[in-house]
């Protein structure tokens, strides 16, 4: 028997067809499709920043790639394909979305004065001035130019720096440069991942 072209039913459904490749009326489904509010997300593989285990995560970002739309993170989950965590996350890692989106994020500097029990808002200019003044005063008071055996060490023992686990590489680079130029030795930036 000669198999006809139609026997094989080469489906060629394109564009706004009203029949499926096998002949079903899809007009009602097309009408339903027009009522759907469809969102476009992307999945980005990344690494949890919190500790040296370096679990794999997948970050879901909402956005239709339009130039005037700001992509927004909507979900973070463990990466099931990652050999370290196989989809699992610790409670801290599972809350990563809140590291990105958080109503309680501080948006301006605060200070707790000596003896005070509360944090007060201060302006950026005032904060920078005060930090500069205290750094200068502390460094001048505690700077060690030579050690007990007379060797030049040029270190500042009155200041320590500790960084946070979500600090970026670039930020940590600046921290190291700044602290080393001040002579600070007690330096920790948590860059372990």
């Amino acid at each position: 028997m000669a198999i006809s072209r139609r026997v094989f039913l080469k489906g060629s459904l394109t564009g706004a067809a009203t029949l499926s490749a096998f002949g079903f009326d899809i007009a009602p489904i097309a009408a339903q499709a027009r009522t759907l509010k469809i969102s476009r997300t992307s999945e980005t593989r990344s690494t949890c920043p919190y500790c040296s285990v370096s679990c794999g995560v997948i970050i879901h970002t909402l956005g239709d790639k339009a130039k005037n739309a700001v992509p927004q993170v909507v979900h973070v989950e463990g990466d099931p394909d990652h050999p370290i965590n196989r989809g699992t996350l610790c409670p801290k890692g599972a809350s990563l979305e809140q590291d990105i989106l958080n109503d309680r994020r501080l948006l301006k500097p605060q200070v707790r004065r000596p003896g005070s029990t509360r944090w007060d808002d201060i302006g950026w200019d005032q904060a920078i001035d005060e930090i500069g003044r205290w750094v200068k005063k502390t460094r001048d008071a505690t700077f060690v130019e030579k050690d007990a055996r007379g060797r030049t060490v040029n270190r500042c023992e009155g200041i320590a720096w500790t960084g946070g686990c979500t600090d970026t590489n670039e930020f940590n680079y600046l921290v190291v440069k700044t602290m080393r130029s001040l002579g600070v030795c007690y330096l920790e930036n948590q860059a372990r991942v």
Binding site: L36, K37, S39, R40, S42, E43
Partner: peptide, 13 residues
């Protein structure tokens, strides 16, 4: 490349 992969979703489904 995640920039070339899209996931389309509707709350209705």
């Amino acid at each position: 490349d995640e920039h070339r992969l899209a996931y389309f979703h509707s709350r209705a489904l």
